[in-house]
């Protein structure tokens, strides 16, 4: 399915783009952020922190997917991760197209969860 135009109120809205900050040495490797990130932006890294745990890292290629929802910082028990608004992007027709496929079977993030 394709949307044939932008929504009429598209100018009043924007797409938040977040930046994930990870304080490596606070992490205790519980995996909550990796599991519950709604956009599947995070994965466990191969690195070790000073405590010997694997802190999370951004999934390669998912840098643009963080929507600054802040769930990771809320669900992290260690105060080790947070997001910051990088930019509020204007909505384009491409974005509308992305949204329609987001939760379809074709979507990479959805497939991973299955």
């Amino acid at each position: 399915m394709r949307f044939w135009r932008l929504p009429l109120d598209a100018e009043h809205h924007s797409i938040p783009r977040g930046e994930v900050h990870i304080i490596d040495n606070r992490c205790k490797g519980c995996g909550f952020c990796v599991e519950f990130c709604p956009n599947g932006c995070l994965r466990e890294s191969k690195r070790f922190n000073v405590k010997g745990y694997h802190p999370p890292e951004m999934v390669y290629g998912a840098e643009e997917d963080c929507g600054d929802c802040g769930l990771c910082s809320l669900i992290c028990p260690e105060f080790a991760i947070y997001t910051q608004l990088k930019e509020a992007k204007k909505i384009t027709e491409d974005d509308i197209q992305k949204v329609t496929t987001r939760y379809s079977r074709k979507d990479r993030r959805y497939a991973k969860k299955r």
Binding site: K28, G29, C30, F32, Y53, L74, I75, C76, P77, E78, F79
Partner: peptide, 8 residues
């Protein structure tokens, strides 16, 4: 402990 929910 790691995995404890208290921090949340």
């Amino acid at each position: 402990c790691p995995g404890c929910g208290l921090g949340i």
